[in-house]
Write a protein that binds this DNA or RNA. Structure first.
Length: 474
RNA sequence: GCCGGUGUAGUUCAAUGGUAGAACAGAGGACUCAUAAGCCUCAAACAAUGGUCCGAUUCCAUUCACCGGCACCA
Protein backbone atom coordinates (compact mmCIF):
# COMPACT_ATOMS: atom_id res chain seq x y z
CA UNK A 1 0.00 0.00 0.00
CA UNK A 2 1.39 3.29 -1.00
CA UNK A 3 0.51 6.75 0.07
CA UNK A 4 1.70 8.56 -2.97
CA UNK A 5 -0.88 10.55 -4.80
CA UNK A 6 0.09 9.83 -8.37
CA UNK A 7 0.17 6.58 -10.28
CA UNK A 8 1.45 5.57 -13.68
CA UNK A 9 0.43 2.50 -15.63
CA UNK A 10 1.06 1.44 -19.19
CA UNK A 11 0.44 -1.47 -21.47
CA UNK A 12 3.06 -2.52 -23.96
CA UNK A 13 2.59 -0.92 -27.33
CA UNK A 14 1.38 -3.49 -29.83
CA UNK A 15 3.22 -3.73 -33.11
CA UNK A 16 0.87 -2.65 -35.86
CA UNK A 17 1.69 -5.29 -38.43
CA UNK A 18 -1.28 -7.43 -37.43
CA UNK A 19 -4.88 -7.04 -36.35
CA UNK A 20 -5.53 -6.35 -32.65
CA UNK A 21 -5.22 -9.61 -30.76
CA UNK A 22 -7.43 -10.82 -27.95
CA UNK A 23 -4.32 -11.08 -25.76
CA UNK A 24 -3.66 -7.41 -26.13
CA UNK A 25 -7.32 -6.63 -25.50
CA UNK A 26 -6.95 -8.47 -22.22
CA UNK A 27 -3.81 -6.56 -21.32
CA UNK A 28 -5.53 -3.27 -22.05
CA UNK A 29 -8.61 -4.15 -20.03
CA UNK A 30 -6.52 -5.28 -17.08
CA UNK A 31 -4.54 -2.08 -17.09
CA UNK A 32 -7.82 -0.20 -17.35
CA UNK A 33 -9.17 -1.92 -14.25
CA UNK A 34 -6.10 -0.97 -12.27
CA UNK A 35 -6.19 2.59 -13.62
CA UNK A 36 -9.87 3.00 -12.72
CA UNK A 37 -9.29 1.51 -9.32
CA UNK A 38 -6.43 3.87 -8.53
CA UNK A 39 -8.39 6.79 -9.82
CA UNK A 40 -11.46 6.00 -7.77
CA UNK A 41 -9.17 5.56 -4.80
CA UNK A 42 -8.24 9.21 -5.15
CA UNK A 43 -4.94 9.01 -6.97
CA UNK A 44 -4.02 11.03 -9.99
CA UNK A 45 -3.46 8.47 -12.70
CA UNK A 46 -1.52 8.55 -15.93
CA UNK A 47 -2.71 5.62 -18.02
CA UNK A 48 -0.91 4.92 -21.26
CA UNK A 49 -1.19 2.75 -24.31
CA UNK A 50 -0.42 3.29 -27.98
CA UNK A 51 1.19 1.69 -31.00
CA UNK A 52 4.67 0.65 -32.02
CA UNK A 53 5.14 1.52 -35.66
CA UNK A 54 8.73 1.31 -36.84
CA UNK A 55 10.88 -1.51 -38.11
CA UNK A 56 11.48 -3.68 -41.09
CA UNK A 57 8.40 -5.85 -40.76
CA UNK A 58 6.13 -2.89 -41.13
CA UNK A 59 8.25 -1.39 -43.85
CA UNK A 60 8.06 -4.60 -45.86
CA UNK A 61 4.42 -5.14 -45.26
CA UNK A 62 3.56 -1.68 -46.47
CA UNK A 63 5.67 -2.27 -49.55
CA UNK A 64 3.94 -5.55 -50.23
CA UNK A 65 0.59 -3.89 -50.03
CA UNK A 66 1.87 -1.06 -52.17
CA UNK A 67 0.98 1.68 -49.74
CA UNK A 68 3.08 4.43 -48.34
CA UNK A 69 4.47 3.35 -45.00
CA UNK A 70 3.08 6.33 -43.16
CA UNK A 71 -0.37 5.66 -44.53
CA UNK A 72 -0.06 2.02 -43.57
CA UNK A 73 0.78 2.77 -39.95
CA UNK A 74 -1.85 5.50 -39.75
CA UNK A 75 -4.54 3.06 -40.78
CA UNK A 76 -3.35 0.28 -38.56
CA UNK A 77 -2.81 2.46 -35.55
CA UNK A 78 -6.46 3.51 -35.78
CA UNK A 79 -7.56 -0.07 -35.35
CA UNK A 80 -5.81 -0.15 -32.02
CA UNK A 81 -7.10 3.22 -30.99
CA UNK A 82 -10.57 1.89 -31.75
CA UNK A 83 -10.13 -0.62 -28.93
CA UNK A 84 -10.47 2.22 -26.44
CA UNK A 85 -14.08 2.76 -27.35
CA UNK A 86 -14.76 -0.82 -28.18
CA UNK A 87 -13.71 -2.04 -24.75
CA UNK A 88 -14.88 1.02 -22.84
CA UNK A 89 -11.40 1.91 -21.71
CA UNK A 90 -11.09 5.03 -19.57
CA UNK A 91 -11.39 7.81 -22.13
CA UNK A 92 -8.62 9.74 -20.43
CA UNK A 93 -6.11 7.11 -21.47
CA UNK A 94 -3.09 8.48 -23.33
CA UNK A 95 -2.26 7.06 -26.69
CA UNK A 96 1.31 7.40 -27.87
CA UNK A 97 2.43 6.49 -31.35
CA UNK A 98 6.10 5.87 -31.97
CA UNK A 99 5.74 7.91 -35.13
CA UNK A 100 4.60 10.97 -33.15
CA UNK A 101 7.05 13.84 -33.43
CA UNK A 102 7.36 14.19 -29.69
CA UNK A 103 8.24 10.53 -29.42
CA UNK A 104 10.85 10.71 -32.15
CA UNK A 105 12.51 13.65 -30.46
CA UNK A 106 12.40 11.92 -27.10
CA UNK A 107 13.94 8.76 -28.54
CA UNK A 108 16.79 10.79 -29.98
CA UNK A 109 17.36 12.60 -26.73
CA UNK A 110 17.27 9.30 -24.89
CA UNK A 111 19.88 7.91 -27.24
CA UNK A 112 22.14 10.86 -26.52
CA UNK A 113 21.84 10.32 -22.81
CA UNK A 114 22.88 6.71 -23.26
CA UNK A 115 25.87 7.57 -25.41
CA UNK A 116 28.47 6.40 -22.93
CA UNK A 117 27.01 2.92 -23.36
CA UNK A 118 26.67 3.07 -27.11
CA UNK A 119 29.44 2.14 -29.48
CA UNK A 120 29.76 1.50 -33.15
CA UNK A 121 31.16 -1.84 -34.11
CA UNK A 122 31.20 -4.37 -36.85
CA UNK A 123 28.24 -6.62 -36.74
CA UNK A 124 28.28 -9.96 -38.46
CA UNK A 125 24.96 -10.81 -39.92
CA UNK A 126 23.97 -14.14 -41.36
CA UNK A 127 22.59 -13.77 -44.80
CA UNK A 128 20.72 -16.23 -46.97
CA UNK A 129 21.29 -15.49 -50.63
CA UNK A 130 18.22 -17.51 -51.54
CA UNK A 131 15.89 -15.44 -49.40
CA UNK A 132 17.96 -12.32 -49.84
CA UNK A 133 17.38 -11.74 -46.17
CA UNK A 134 19.25 -11.52 -42.95
CA UNK A 135 18.68 -14.55 -40.75
CA UNK A 136 18.87 -14.95 -37.00
CA UNK A 137 20.27 -18.03 -35.31
CA UNK A 138 16.84 -19.17 -34.29
CA UNK A 139 15.75 -19.11 -37.90
CA UNK A 140 18.51 -21.46 -38.97
CA UNK A 141 18.60 -25.21 -38.74
CA UNK A 142 22.08 -26.64 -38.25
CA UNK A 143 23.56 -23.60 -39.85
CA UNK A 144 21.35 -23.56 -42.91
CA UNK A 145 18.32 -21.65 -44.00
CA UNK A 146 15.22 -23.77 -43.63
CA UNK A 147 13.94 -22.66 -47.01
CA UNK A 148 17.25 -23.04 -48.81
CA UNK A 149 19.11 -25.85 -47.07
CA UNK A 150 21.50 -26.40 -49.94
CA UNK A 151 22.82 -22.86 -49.96
CA UNK A 152 25.54 -21.75 -47.61
CA UNK A 153 24.72 -18.97 -45.22
CA UNK A 154 26.94 -16.01 -45.93
CA UNK A 155 28.43 -13.89 -43.21
CA UNK A 156 28.26 -10.24 -44.00
CA UNK A 157 29.57 -7.41 -41.96
CA UNK A 158 27.98 -4.11 -41.38
CA UNK A 159 28.57 -1.35 -38.95
CA UNK A 160 25.95 -1.01 -36.28
CA UNK A 161 25.58 0.77 -33.02
CA UNK A 162 25.53 -1.42 -29.96
CA UNK A 163 24.16 -0.84 -26.52
CA UNK A 164 26.49 -2.11 -23.82
CA UNK A 165 23.99 -4.21 -21.97
CA UNK A 166 26.90 -6.12 -20.48
CA UNK A 167 27.67 -3.07 -18.35
CA UNK A 168 24.42 -3.58 -16.50
CA UNK A 169 24.46 -7.16 -15.34
CA UNK A 170 25.29 -6.36 -11.72
CA UNK A 171 23.07 -3.33 -11.60
CA UNK A 172 20.11 -5.26 -12.94
CA UNK A 173 20.70 -8.06 -10.47
CA UNK A 174 20.79 -5.52 -7.68
CA UNK A 175 17.55 -4.06 -8.92
CA UNK A 176 15.91 -7.48 -8.84
CA UNK A 177 17.34 -8.46 -5.50
CA UNK A 178 16.30 -5.30 -3.77
CA UNK A 179 12.81 -5.48 -5.31
CA UNK A 180 11.52 -9.03 -5.01
CA UNK A 181 8.22 -7.94 -6.51
CA UNK A 182 9.78 -6.13 -9.40
CA UNK A 183 8.38 -8.70 -11.77
CA UNK A 184 5.05 -10.39 -11.11
CA UNK A 185 4.49 -13.35 -11.01
CA UNK A 186 7.44 -14.95 -9.18
CA UNK A 187 8.07 -17.46 -11.92
CA UNK A 188 8.80 -14.66 -14.36
CA UNK A 189 10.89 -12.86 -11.77
CA UNK A 190 13.01 -15.96 -11.37
CA UNK A 191 13.23 -16.38 -15.09
CA UNK A 192 14.58 -12.94 -15.78
CA UNK A 193 16.95 -13.12 -12.84
CA UNK A 194 18.35 -16.40 -14.14
CA UNK A 195 18.64 -14.94 -17.59
CA UNK A 196 20.67 -11.99 -16.40
CA UNK A 197 22.80 -14.16 -14.13
CA UNK A 198 23.91 -16.18 -17.14
CA UNK A 199 25.55 -13.09 -18.53
CA UNK A 200 24.51 -10.38 -20.94
CA UNK A 201 25.59 -9.66 -24.45
CA UNK A 202 25.62 -6.26 -26.01
CA UNK A 203 22.84 -5.48 -28.38
CA UNK A 204 22.67 -4.03 -31.80
CA UNK A 205 20.40 -1.03 -31.66
CA UNK A 206 20.60 0.42 -35.13
CA UNK A 207 20.11 -0.49 -38.75
CA UNK A 208 21.58 0.94 -41.89
CA UNK A 209 19.16 3.44 -43.27
CA UNK A 210 20.04 2.50 -46.81
CA UNK A 211 18.58 -0.94 -46.18
CA UNK A 212 15.75 -0.06 -43.90
CA UNK A 213 14.78 3.58 -43.68
CA UNK A 214 11.65 3.17 -41.53
CA UNK A 215 12.92 4.18 -38.13
CA UNK A 216 14.05 7.02 -35.93
CA UNK A 217 17.21 8.57 -37.23
CA UNK A 218 20.21 8.13 -34.97
CA UNK A 219 21.36 11.53 -33.70
CA UNK A 220 24.58 12.66 -35.33
CA UNK A 221 24.61 9.78 -37.81
CA UNK A 222 22.02 10.11 -40.51
CA UNK A 223 23.11 6.83 -42.10
CA UNK A 224 21.51 4.85 -39.32
CA UNK A 225 18.09 4.47 -37.84
CA UNK A 226 17.36 3.04 -34.44
CA UNK A 227 16.39 -0.58 -34.21
CA UNK A 228 12.69 -0.72 -33.34
CA UNK A 229 12.78 -1.88 -29.78
CA UNK A 230 15.16 0.83 -28.71
CA UNK A 231 12.85 3.61 -29.80
CA UNK A 232 9.68 1.77 -28.83
CA UNK A 233 10.70 1.39 -25.20
CA UNK A 234 11.23 5.10 -24.86
CA UNK A 235 7.53 5.58 -25.56
CA UNK A 236 6.75 4.84 -21.92
CA UNK A 237 8.25 8.19 -21.04
CA UNK A 238 7.83 10.12 -24.27
CA UNK A 239 4.12 9.81 -23.60
CA UNK A 240 4.76 11.90 -20.49
CA UNK A 241 6.36 14.58 -22.66
CA UNK A 242 9.76 13.69 -21.39
CA UNK A 243 12.19 15.42 -21.65
CA UNK A 244 10.37 18.74 -22.13
CA UNK A 245 7.93 18.45 -19.31
CA UNK A 246 10.01 17.65 -16.27
CA UNK A 247 7.12 18.33 -13.90
CA UNK A 248 4.97 15.74 -15.56
CA UNK A 249 7.83 13.30 -15.64
CA UNK A 250 8.57 13.82 -11.99
CA UNK A 251 4.99 13.48 -10.99
CA UNK A 252 4.23 10.28 -12.83
CA UNK A 253 7.51 8.53 -13.43
CA UNK A 254 9.80 9.56 -10.60
CA UNK A 255 7.01 9.60 -8.04
CA UNK A 256 4.17 7.82 -9.76
CA UNK A 257 5.02 4.16 -9.16
CA UNK A 258 5.51 3.36 -12.83
CA UNK A 259 3.76 0.07 -13.47
CA UNK A 260 3.90 -1.84 -16.71
CA UNK A 261 1.73 -4.60 -18.05
CA UNK A 262 3.29 -6.88 -20.65
CA UNK A 263 2.85 -10.25 -22.27
CA UNK A 264 5.27 -13.02 -21.43
CA UNK A 265 7.07 -12.54 -24.75
CA UNK A 266 8.06 -9.12 -23.51
CA UNK A 267 9.64 -10.10 -20.26
CA UNK A 268 13.19 -9.50 -21.32
CA UNK A 269 12.63 -6.23 -23.10
CA UNK A 270 10.68 -4.71 -20.26
CA UNK A 271 12.44 -6.02 -17.21
CA UNK A 272 16.02 -6.12 -18.43
CA UNK A 273 16.71 -4.01 -21.51
CA UNK A 274 14.43 -1.13 -20.75
CA UNK A 275 15.66 -1.03 -17.18
CA UNK A 276 19.27 -0.98 -18.31
CA UNK A 277 18.44 1.80 -20.73
CA UNK A 278 16.85 3.83 -17.97
CA UNK A 279 19.92 3.33 -15.80
CA UNK A 280 22.15 4.37 -18.63
CA UNK A 281 20.13 7.53 -19.21
CA UNK A 282 20.26 8.30 -15.51
CA UNK A 283 16.53 7.91 -15.01
CA UNK A 284 14.66 5.96 -12.36
CA UNK A 285 13.61 2.40 -13.04
CA UNK A 286 10.09 1.16 -13.43
CA UNK A 287 8.45 0.13 -10.20
CA UNK A 288 6.83 -3.09 -11.28
CA UNK A 289 6.30 -5.23 -14.37
CA UNK A 290 3.24 -7.46 -14.54
CA UNK A 291 3.56 -10.34 -16.96
CA UNK A 292 0.47 -11.89 -18.54
CA UNK A 293 0.24 -15.35 -20.05
CA UNK A 294 -1.00 -16.08 -23.53
CA UNK A 295 -4.46 -16.87 -24.73
CA UNK A 296 -4.44 -20.00 -26.83
CA UNK A 297 -7.13 -21.93 -28.54
CA UNK A 298 -7.28 -25.72 -28.48
CA UNK A 299 -3.75 -25.85 -27.20
CA UNK A 300 -2.38 -23.78 -30.03
CA UNK A 301 -1.53 -20.23 -30.70
CA UNK A 302 -4.31 -18.34 -32.38
CA UNK A 303 -3.41 -17.88 -36.01
CA UNK A 304 -5.13 -17.09 -39.23
CA UNK A 305 -3.93 -20.25 -40.87
CA UNK A 306 -5.41 -22.40 -38.12
CA UNK A 307 -8.63 -20.45 -38.33
CA UNK A 308 -8.93 -20.30 -34.55
CA UNK A 309 -8.62 -16.56 -34.12
CA UNK A 310 -11.05 -14.87 -31.77
CA UNK A 311 -10.85 -11.13 -32.19
CA UNK A 312 -11.84 -8.41 -29.70
CA UNK A 313 -14.36 -7.13 -32.23
CA UNK A 314 -16.08 -10.48 -32.49
CA UNK A 315 -16.24 -10.76 -28.72
CA UNK A 316 -17.91 -7.41 -28.29
CA UNK A 317 -20.25 -8.06 -31.16
CA UNK A 318 -21.41 -11.33 -29.69
CA UNK A 319 -21.48 -10.59 -25.98
CA UNK A 320 -21.37 -6.83 -25.57
CA UNK A 321 -18.69 -4.64 -23.99
CA UNK A 322 -19.09 -5.38 -20.33
CA UNK A 323 -19.56 -9.08 -20.92
CA UNK A 324 -16.36 -9.06 -22.95
CA UNK A 325 -14.56 -7.35 -20.10
CA UNK A 326 -15.99 -9.96 -17.76
CA UNK A 327 -14.86 -12.83 -19.95
CA UNK A 328 -11.36 -11.43 -20.28
CA UNK A 329 -11.00 -10.76 -16.59
CA UNK A 330 -12.78 -13.58 -14.82
CA UNK A 331 -11.83 -16.86 -16.39
CA UNK A 332 -8.54 -16.13 -18.02
CA UNK A 333 -5.74 -16.95 -15.66
CA UNK A 334 -4.08 -13.85 -14.30
CA UNK A 335 -0.59 -15.04 -15.09
CA UNK A 336 -0.59 -18.38 -16.89
CA UNK A 337 -1.66 -19.38 -20.38
CA UNK A 338 -5.34 -20.07 -20.82
CA UNK A 339 -7.17 -21.99 -23.50
CA UNK A 340 -10.15 -20.16 -24.93
CA UNK A 341 -12.77 -21.41 -27.37
CA UNK A 342 -16.20 -20.11 -28.34
CA UNK A 343 -17.76 -23.03 -26.48
CA UNK A 344 -16.04 -22.09 -23.26
CA UNK A 345 -16.81 -18.42 -23.70
CA UNK A 346 -20.48 -19.28 -24.13
CA UNK A 347 -20.42 -21.38 -20.97
CA UNK A 348 -18.74 -18.63 -19.01
CA UNK A 349 -21.20 -16.09 -20.28
CA UNK A 350 -24.25 -18.21 -19.51
CA UNK A 351 -23.25 -19.26 -16.04
CA UNK A 352 -21.68 -16.06 -14.78
CA UNK A 353 -23.76 -13.39 -16.50
CA UNK A 354 -27.08 -14.73 -17.79
CA UNK A 355 -27.73 -17.18 -14.97
CA UNK A 356 -25.66 -15.30 -12.41
CA UNK A 357 -25.55 -11.55 -12.32
CA UNK A 358 -28.27 -10.84 -14.90
CA UNK A 359 -30.81 -13.16 -13.36
CA UNK A 360 -30.09 -11.89 -9.86
CA UNK A 361 -30.68 -8.29 -10.89
CA UNK A 362 -33.89 -9.34 -12.53
CA UNK A 363 -35.35 -11.26 -9.60
CA UNK A 364 -34.38 -8.71 -6.96
CA UNK A 365 -35.72 -5.77 -8.89
CA UNK A 366 -38.94 -7.48 -9.77
CA UNK A 367 -39.66 -7.97 -6.10
CA UNK A 368 -38.45 -4.53 -5.12
CA UNK A 369 -40.72 -3.08 -7.72
CA UNK A 370 -43.78 -5.16 -6.92
CA UNK A 371 -43.54 -4.96 -3.17
CA UNK A 372 -42.93 -1.24 -3.08
CA UNK A 373 -39.53 -1.08 -1.43
CA UNK A 374 -38.92 2.58 -0.77
CA UNK A 375 -35.35 3.10 0.34
CA UNK A 376 -32.13 1.20 0.24
CA UNK A 377 -29.33 1.51 2.73
CA UNK A 378 -26.06 2.91 1.55
CA UNK A 379 -23.19 0.51 1.33
CA UNK A 380 -20.12 0.58 3.42
CA UNK A 381 -17.64 -1.50 1.54
CA UNK A 382 -14.58 -2.42 3.48
CA UNK A 383 -11.72 -0.80 1.71
CA UNK A 384 -8.42 -2.55 1.28
CA UNK A 385 -5.93 -2.77 -1.54
CA UNK A 386 -7.71 -5.34 -3.65
CA UNK A 387 -5.35 -5.18 -6.54
CA UNK A 388 -2.05 -5.08 -4.73
CA UNK A 389 -1.02 -8.40 -6.18
CA UNK A 390 -2.73 -7.72 -9.53
CA UNK A 391 -4.82 -10.84 -9.16
CA UNK A 392 -7.95 -9.48 -10.79
CA UNK A 393 -9.31 -12.98 -11.14
CA UNK A 394 -9.33 -13.37 -7.39
CA UNK A 395 -11.25 -10.14 -7.02
CA UNK A 396 -13.80 -11.30 -9.57
CA UNK A 397 -14.26 -14.58 -7.79
CA UNK A 398 -14.94 -12.67 -4.62
CA UNK A 399 -17.68 -10.65 -6.30
CA UNK A 400 -19.29 -13.72 -7.79
CA UNK A 401 -19.31 -15.36 -4.39
CA UNK A 402 -21.41 -12.45 -3.21
CA UNK A 403 -23.76 -12.97 -6.13
CA UNK A 404 -24.12 -16.62 -5.20
CA UNK A 405 -24.71 -15.74 -1.58
CA UNK A 406 -27.43 -13.30 -2.50
CA UNK A 407 -29.16 -15.89 -4.67
CA UNK A 408 -29.06 -18.29 -1.77
CA UNK A 409 -30.41 -15.70 0.59
CA UNK A 410 -33.49 -15.26 -1.55
CA UNK A 411 -34.06 -18.99 -1.44
CA UNK A 412 -33.48 -19.20 2.30
CA UNK A 413 -35.62 -16.27 3.33
CA UNK A 414 -38.36 -16.70 0.74
CA UNK A 415 -39.61 -13.10 0.62
CA UNK A 416 -41.95 -14.04 -2.25
CA UNK A 417 -43.76 -16.43 0.11
CA UNK A 418 -43.72 -14.16 3.11
CA UNK A 419 -45.17 -11.32 1.10
CA UNK A 420 -48.44 -13.21 0.94
CA UNK A 421 -48.87 -13.12 4.71
CA UNK A 422 -46.77 -10.23 5.92
CA UNK A 423 -45.85 -7.40 3.61
CA UNK A 424 -43.56 -5.65 6.01
CA UNK A 425 -41.27 -8.60 6.60
CA UNK A 426 -41.01 -9.26 2.88
CA UNK A 427 -40.24 -5.65 2.13
CA UNK A 428 -37.49 -5.63 4.70
CA UNK A 429 -35.93 -8.72 3.25
CA UNK A 430 -36.03 -7.31 -0.26
CA UNK A 431 -34.60 -4.00 0.89
CA UNK A 432 -31.76 -5.95 2.36
CA UNK A 433 -31.29 -7.80 -0.92
CA UNK A 434 -31.17 -4.46 -2.71
CA UNK A 435 -28.38 -3.39 -0.42
CA UNK A 436 -26.44 -6.53 -1.26
CA UNK A 437 -27.01 -5.94 -4.93
CA UNK A 438 -25.90 -2.35 -4.59
CA UNK A 439 -22.69 -3.50 -3.03
CA UNK A 440 -22.13 -5.95 -5.88
CA UNK A 441 -22.69 -3.19 -8.40
CA UNK A 442 -20.30 -1.00 -6.48
CA UNK A 443 -17.58 -3.64 -6.56
CA UNK A 444 -18.08 -3.99 -10.30
CA UNK A 445 -17.41 -0.34 -11.02
CA UNK A 446 -13.85 -0.96 -12.21
CA UNK A 447 -14.67 -4.20 -13.93
CA UNK A 448 -17.93 -3.51 -15.76
CA UNK A 449 -18.48 0.24 -15.50
CA UNK A 450 -21.65 0.44 -17.53
CA UNK A 451 -23.32 -2.52 -15.87
CA UNK A 452 -22.37 -1.13 -12.50
CA UNK A 453 -24.08 2.15 -13.34
CA UNK A 454 -27.19 0.49 -14.75
CA UNK A 455 -27.65 -1.64 -11.65
CA UNK A 456 -27.09 1.30 -9.33
CA UNK A 457 -29.54 3.56 -11.10
CA UNK A 458 -32.08 0.75 -11.34
CA UNK A 459 -31.84 0.35 -7.60
CA UNK A 460 -32.11 4.07 -7.03
CA UNK A 461 -35.21 4.29 -9.21
CA UNK A 462 -36.41 0.83 -8.19
CA UNK A 463 -37.06 0.07 -11.78
CA UNK A 464 -36.20 -3.21 -13.41
CA UNK A 465 -33.67 -2.65 -16.22
CA UNK A 466 -33.68 -4.20 -19.65
CA UNK A 467 -32.41 -7.73 -19.75
CA UNK A 468 -28.75 -7.13 -18.91
CA UNK A 469 -27.30 -10.33 -20.31
CA UNK A 470 -29.70 -12.07 -22.67
CA UNK A 471 -29.30 -15.78 -23.12
CA UNK A 472 -27.24 -16.46 -26.20
CA UNK A 473 -29.49 -18.90 -27.98
CA UNK A 474 -32.75 -17.43 -26.87
C1' G B 1 21.41 -31.08 -23.65
C1' C B 2 21.19 -27.45 -19.40
C1' C B 3 18.11 -24.56 -15.85
C1' G B 4 13.26 -23.65 -13.63
C1' G B 5 8.18 -25.03 -12.91
C1' U B 6 3.77 -28.11 -12.96
C1' G B 7 1.08 -32.91 -12.59
C1' U B 8 -5.69 -32.99 -7.63
C1' A B 9 -12.94 -34.89 -10.06
C1' G B 10 -14.99 -34.48 -17.46
C1' U B 11 -12.91 -29.13 -17.30
C1' U B 12 -10.69 -24.86 -14.58
C1' C B 13 -8.71 -24.11 -9.96
C1' A B 14 -8.07 -24.47 -4.04
C1' A B 15 -6.33 -26.20 0.65
C1' U B 16 -3.69 -29.43 3.90
C1' G B 17 1.87 -33.86 7.74
C1' G B 18 -3.85 -36.89 10.44
C1' U B 19 -11.96 -37.21 7.28
C1' A B 20 -9.15 -33.45 -0.13
C1' G B 21 -12.80 -27.85 -0.94
C1' A B 22 -15.13 -25.04 -4.89
C1' A B 23 -16.86 -23.43 -9.68
C1' C B 24 -18.53 -24.96 -14.57
C1' A B 25 -20.34 -29.24 -17.09
C1' G B 26 -23.52 -34.13 -15.70
C1' A B 27 -27.87 -36.94 -12.94
C1' G B 28 -32.15 -36.48 -9.65
C1' G B 29 -35.62 -33.49 -6.46
C1' A B 30 -38.73 -29.76 -4.09
C1' C B 31 -40.11 -24.74 -5.08
C1' U B 32 -41.67 -20.17 -8.07
C1' C B 33 -39.39 -13.83 -7.05
C1' A B 34 -36.40 -14.49 -11.72
C1' U B 35 -33.43 -14.69 -18.12
C1' A B 36 -36.63 -23.03 -18.32
C1' A B 37 -32.58 -18.93 -14.24
C1' G B 38 -31.98 -19.90 -8.61
C1' C B 39 -32.03 -23.58 -4.41
C1' C B 40 -31.30 -28.76 -2.44
C1' U B 41 -29.31 -33.69 -3.15
C1' C B 42 -26.15 -37.12 -5.85
C1' A B 43 -21.97 -38.88 -8.74
C1' A B 44 -16.83 -37.62 -9.63
C1' A B 45 -9.89 -36.64 -8.30
C1' C B 46 -4.53 -36.46 -5.06
C1' A B 47 0.53 -39.34 -12.40
C1' A B 48 3.77 -43.84 -10.83
C1' U B 49 7.39 -46.08 -7.56
C1' G B 50 10.45 -45.88 -3.34
C1' G B 51 11.98 -43.27 1.24
C1' U B 52 11.41 -40.27 6.05
C1' C B 53 7.39 -40.43 9.69
C1' C B 54 2.90 -43.28 14.39
C1' G B 55 0.77 -41.20 9.90
C1' A B 56 2.04 -38.06 3.22
C1' U B 57 -1.84 -35.75 -1.67
C1' U B 58 1.34 -32.46 1.30
C1' C B 59 8.50 -33.39 2.79
C1' C B 60 12.72 -36.15 0.02
C1' A B 61 14.42 -39.22 -4.23
C1' U B 62 13.57 -41.58 -8.85
C1' U B 63 10.53 -42.42 -13.26
C1' C B 64 6.95 -40.74 -16.69
C1' A B 65 4.15 -36.62 -18.80
C1' C B 66 3.42 -31.54 -19.75
C1' C B 67 4.91 -26.23 -19.65
C1' G B 68 8.46 -22.11 -19.61
C1' G B 69 13.51 -20.21 -20.37
C1' C B 70 18.45 -20.93 -22.62
C1' A B 71 19.12 -13.39 -26.59
C1' C B 72 18.54 -9.56 -31.48
C1' C B 73 11.09 -12.76 -32.38
C1' A B 74 7.50 -6.57 -30.91
Amino acid sequence: MTHKKSFYITTTLPYVNAEPHIGFAMELVRADVIARYKKLSGQEVFFNTGTDEHGSKIFKKAQEEGIETQKFVDDHSEKFRDLIKLLNIDPEVHFIRTTDQKHIKAAQEFWKRCEKDIEKKLYKIKYCVGCELEKTDSELESGHCVLHPLLEIEEREEENYFFKLSNYQDKLLNLYKSNPNFVIPDSRYNEIKAFVERGLEDFSISRLKSKMPWGVEVPSDSEHVMYVWFDALVSYISTLDWPQNEDNFTKFWREGIPTQYAGKDNLRQQSAMWQAMLMSAGLPNSYQIIINGFINSRGQKMSKSLGNVISPNELVEKYGVDATRYLLLRHINSFEDTDVTWERLDEWYESGLANGLGNLVSRVLTMANNYGVSTIDSVHTIHYDYFKDFDIQKYMNHVWELIKKTDKKIQDEEPYKKYKTNHEIAVNIVADLCTNLYEIAHLLRYIMPKTSEVIKSSLEDLKKPENLFPRINA
